[in-house]
Nucleic acid binder design. Structure first.
Length: 307
DNA sequence: TATTTTACCTGAGGGC
DNA sequence: TGCCCTCAGGTAAAAT
């Protein structure tokens, strides 16, 4: 499932092919891929034809491609199963292909960018660019301090140099929700999904259901550090692939699935202590954790003060 | 206001 | 072989 590392792999793959490329034609094969776009498929096609892509940017799991003039951008979200694939000009349709952009790059020639999406949770849209409140660049891949309107309510991601650590720690301290829920809240920190939430919590030895506000400040900071190291390691390995659902722009899978310690390892021994990893239901999905390393509650004075 | 639940969607895989 | 059921889960809207 595409989370921050997977989306960053896609962004980095698209960047050299799209930066400076002119959109020659657009084909919307399935309008369900435009659920966040205010206009019709025909309007989407007409509005983009002839425009030039100036960058490929990302914040959290959102991608966007600013267009000439820097007033608007193509915004994309991969949802559960979305893919952005680079194909040769005239390549046959991909399975679950929803939208195709035919582009002409001054150095790389004619290419096709295919948005394919089995479960149709992902989408593309044209969206105006708004200034960032903090004046810092909107996200990875751009130096311009703007974000698409649809991304404006999302927090920066933990790998963003302008990420506000203090705001994260205070959001954790304020919330009565389970700490895993806070990690998944894109308005607190973006880019974290079910896989990396489980991995970071395992790494920090924090139980997913523990009320966020019960974490000591130093524990919250350690959790944030573990979030970062898990994301960075996954990024270095090309992201996590379980099946054909997540691939880079060339259709290749990532390797991080081999490095998972908790997620998807139900019944397998915890790499730290050997206790079998358990899986529990968590808001229509699953949490995986070590019942020995990640205790549901600790005595605050004894536990957090010491470690 | 803060938090929780639900809808959206398709294909893989298990059970019978 | 084929049908039915469950599961995967990010986001935003709706409900509490």
């Amino acid at each position: 499932m595409p989370e921050l590392p997977e989306v960053e792999v896609v962004r980095a793959g698209l960047e050299p092919a799209l930066r400076g490329a002119r959109i020659v034609s657009v084909t919307v094969a399935d309008e369900r891929a435009l659920t966040r776009h205010p206009g019709s498929g025909a309007q989407f096609e007409a509005a983009l034809t002839g425009r030039t892509v100036s960058a490929v940017a990302r914040r959290g799991k959102f991608l966007w491609m600013p267009l000439d003039g820097d007033a608007d951008a193509i915004v994309g979200h991969l949802g559960m199963s979305g893919q952005m694939l680079l194909r040769g000009s005239g390549a046959p349709p991909d399975r679950h292909e929803r939208i195709r952009l035919d582009v002409r790059h001054p150095a790389h020639g004619d290419l096709a960018v295919v948005f394919a999406d089995q479960r149709t949770f992902g989408s593309l849209a044209i969206d105006p660019l708004l200034p960032t409140p903090d004046g810092a660049p909107g996200g990875r891949g751009t130096s311009t301090p703007t974000v698409p309107a649809q991304v404006a309510h999302i927090a920066r991601d933990p790998l963003d140099p302008a990420f506000d650590d203090g705001a994260f720690v205070s959001a954790v301290a304020r919330s009565r929700s389970a700490v895993k829920r806070v990690l998944l809240d894109q308005t607190v920190a973006s880019g974290i999904g079910n896989i990396y939430a489980d991995e970071a919590l395992w790494s920090a030895r924090v139980h997913p259901d523990r009320p966020a506000a019960t974490l000591a400040t130093r524990t919250a900071r350690r959790l944030l550090a573990d979030v970062r190291s898990v994301l960075e390691k996954a990024l270095a390995e090309g992201g996590t692939s379980f099946d054909a659902q997540y691939v880079n722009v060339n259709g290749q899978a990532g390797y991080f699935a081999h490095s998972l310690n908790a997620y998807g390892r139900t019944g397998a021994p915890c790499p730290r202590c050997g206790t079998p990893i358990v899986r529990v239901s968590f808001t229509n999905r699953s949490s995986h954790y070590c019942p020995r390393c990640q205790r549901p509650a600790r005595l605050r004075a004894a536990g957090d003060a010491v470690r």
